[in-house]
Amino acid sequence: MKKISLYITMFLAVCLLACTEDFNEDVAAPQSYPEESPQVINGFAIALDGGFTSPVVLKNLEENASIQAVKATATPEMTEGASVTFRLQLSDTESFTRIIDLPSQSENNAAVVDASDLNGAVKELFGKAPNPRAIHLRAYVYILDGTSASQLPDPVSLGTVTVTPIAPNIEQAYYLIGTPNDWEASNVSTLIAFNHSGNDVYEDSYFTLLVESPGDCYWKVVPQSIVTAVETGVAESVWIDGVLGTEIDSDASLEGKLDVKTTGAMKIADKGWAKITLNMMESTYTVEVIGEMKLQLYVAGAHQGWDPAAAPIVYSRNFDMKYDGYV
């Protein structure tokens, strides 16, 4: 009988050891911030609410989604019907040297913010690039009692929240493919590069190109990533996903929307020079038809003895029919 009891005891011990195995060992926990103690001022305990307790990626939310921002977790005794409201401010520094007011709505001793307002505020502080930004948040606390409101003397600093704003993916360079390069898609050196200021593409999203149209000049736009894919042997030609066209093929409109999901080509119907401008923040294009013109003129005359071989040249540098040079 003692042997049987011993075997049962050993069996139960093995079972208990087996049950201690952690089957969630390789499962990643949801990303969130370490829980911080509420900030207490004059008996009011203020803390970040659920929407701000983990990084906020705005593209994952509806445009006008409400985000739980700040809440009062405890208050001193208040008169019946009184409530806590908030005024929120953001900054890019802990010292709040530069401040952006963040619109919010207070109810039930908590404040929510609109996703679009947060997106605009973060872009105003840091620029338009869709990078994660560490914003510093503080709140002014008000006690609303009927029609009167009193403000606590000092704002409550609530630490940092990481927010990634919404913006399109803008590449560093774009190229024209079409009639001007005979639609050559494998030799990317024949593509015609759009000009850009060289500044941050999210602060200057305009790319321009002057092109001479033979009439019925068809074109599309190739991003730098596709050119790189061809140059590195990842793709054989530029005809992979990502080339920008328009919904209607042979669209001769002087403005329109660029889209990677469409297969249509834009068209410059007139003959002569044209200026194409891309606004990649809005994914739009405009075409300014300049017309036929010579970019340089020879100026013969008495000033140089009417010698054609010695005639000075004047240039039109801005495609505006105005020429300058020395004669």
Rank of each mutant, 00 (worst) to 15 (best):
P30F: 01
S37T: 15
E107T: 10
E25F: 15
Y315R: 14
A13C: 13
V314Y: 06
S213W: 05
V327D: 06
P214Q: 13
P76I: 05
I41C: 07
N187F: 11
I240L: 08
T262S: 10
P223F: 02
T262Y: 12
G301T: 03
D22M: 07
A185K: 08
N108A: 12
S250R: 14
N108S: 11
T246R: 10
A28G: 03
S66P: 03
D249C: 07
V70A: 07
L144R: 06
Y33M: 05
V188C: 12
T190H: 12
D307N: 11
D117M: 00
G50V: 03
C217Y: 08
G301P: 00
F194E: 06
V227C: 11
S91R: 04
T246E: 13
T162M: 10
E282Q: 14
T97Q: 15
T179P: 08
M78V: 05
T246A: 11
M293A: 07
V14Y: 11
V112N: 09
D324N: 13
L48D: 07
T208D: 11
T208W: 05
A110W: 00
G305L: 03
L209G: 09
N318M: 07
P155T: 05
S32M: 00
C19V: 10
A121L: 02
T277R: 03
D92K: 15
F96L: 01
K59Y: 01
V163G: 02
S205R: 06
D249W: 05
Y140A: 10
M281I: 05
V222T: 12
A110H: 01
P214Y: 09
L278K: 04
T147M: 02
T162Y: 08
A265E: 15
M293W: 06
G325D: 01
M321L: 13
T286H: 03
A28N: 13
D251L: 09
G233H: 00
A274D: 02
G81F: 03
M266Y: 08
I276H: 10
F44R: 03
